[in-house]
């Protein structure tokens, strides 16, 4: 192993980490407000196809990101209407959203399959920082979306922990009736959180299609949306811990194709199981801990709320 391979690996660790982090951050926001959205996979796919369409039309990755965010946000709005406003079951609605999003993206994207790549997210003009040995390529030569992801992670933490909006959102996710009694509109909060979650999943899909897969194919998401769902649990619903998890799980994704060059005699397919296996392990540990203190999971997750008179 030489410096080049290691640097190459770490560049990919960050790239895959960013991919997973954006989607997981979106899911985290929705879950913090008490809405489980199992439609991440579908929202990422819609974001991906929207970004590719935009790339073909306008060529600008920034426009692509915005279009992807809007498209996936609109898709998330379906879940918000069905599961939040109408109060139908969140699990079923979310899974249907995945099926719908995968189907719709395939339908809309059929003409884009195996087209050549469109313009990628570029790097920031950081000048000589990019030339630095090792940390230059790993940190400063990354596409600007990586910086955006970091900034969004910090912003999410700040809003959740340090603002009135975040306090209200967390309250809605812990106990909707209490939040309602304190004057926080449960419906508005949850709809907004689900839509924000969709926008972030759309960003993730755009980054996947433009920079990582470098093109659109049906099924391009390949289960990454489920890793994002797992990451939120691994990160114990905290943006910071989720970022560490994103780097870890992203690291596993980056490691997969390289194992053989590193001379490790383990099938990359088996390594690719690890994120899910680790998540099951973490969940078991949380469950054991929650015998002595409240669980890290938002208490009202999965529960619809309707204000009713006696």
């Amino acid at each position: 192993m030489n410096e080049v391979t290691i640097v190459g690996l770490l560049v990919d660790v960050i790239a895959f980490g960013v991919l997973l982090y954006l989607a997981a951050l979106g899911e985290l926001v929705a879950e913090k407000a008490g809405v489980l959205n199992l439609g991440v996979e579908g929202m990422m796919a819609i974001g991906g196809v929207a970004a590719f369409w935009s790339g073909v039309q306008f060529g600008s990755p920034l426009v692509g990101l915005i279009v992807a965010g809007i498209a996936a946000g609109l898709l998330a709005l379906v879940h918000a209407l069905v599961a939040v406003v109408l109060g139908a079951d969140q699990v079923v609605s979310g899974l249907a959203l995945t099926i719908f999003g995968l189907g719709l993206s395939a339908f809309l994207g059929k003409e884009y399959v195996s087209l050549p790549p469109v313009e990628q997210f570029g790097t920031l003009p950081l000048g000589s920082l990019r030339e630095l040995r090792i940390i230059g390529p790993i940190l400063f030569d990354q596409p600007w979306v990586a910086w955006l992801a970091a900034a969004l992670g910090f912003l999410t933490w700040f809003v959740l922990e340090r603002t009135r909006v975040g306090l209200g959102l967390r309250a809605v996710g812990e106990n909707a009736a209490t939040a309602d009694a304190a004057g926080q509109s449960v419906t508005v909060t949850r709809v907004a959180a689900v839509v924000v979650g969709g926008v972030l999943a759309g960003f993730s899909g755009a980054f996947l299609v433009l920079n990582l897969a470098k093109g659109w194919t049906e099924g391009v998401t390949a289960g990454r949306g489920w890793i994002a769902v797992a990451l939120v649990i691994f990160g114990a619903w905290r943006p910071g811990r989720t970022a560490i998890g994103a780097l870890l799980f992203g690291g596993l994704l980056a490691l997969e194709p390289r194992l053989q060059t590193f001379g490790v005699e383990v099938s990359p397919i088996l390594v690719s199981m690890l994120p899910y296996a680790i998540t099951i392990g973490v969940l078991v540990v949380f469950s054991i801990q929650s015998r002595h203190r409240p669980s890290a999971a938002p208490a009202a997750i999965g529960r619809a709320y309707r204000r009713e008179e006696r």
């Binding site: 069905v82 109408l86 609605s93 099926i99 719908f100 189907g103």
Partner: peptide
Amino acid sequence: SIASILQALILFGALA
């Protein structure tokens, strides 16, 4: 993929 789309829409419609 119209089949997936229809299946999901049937569910959303029925839930509503």
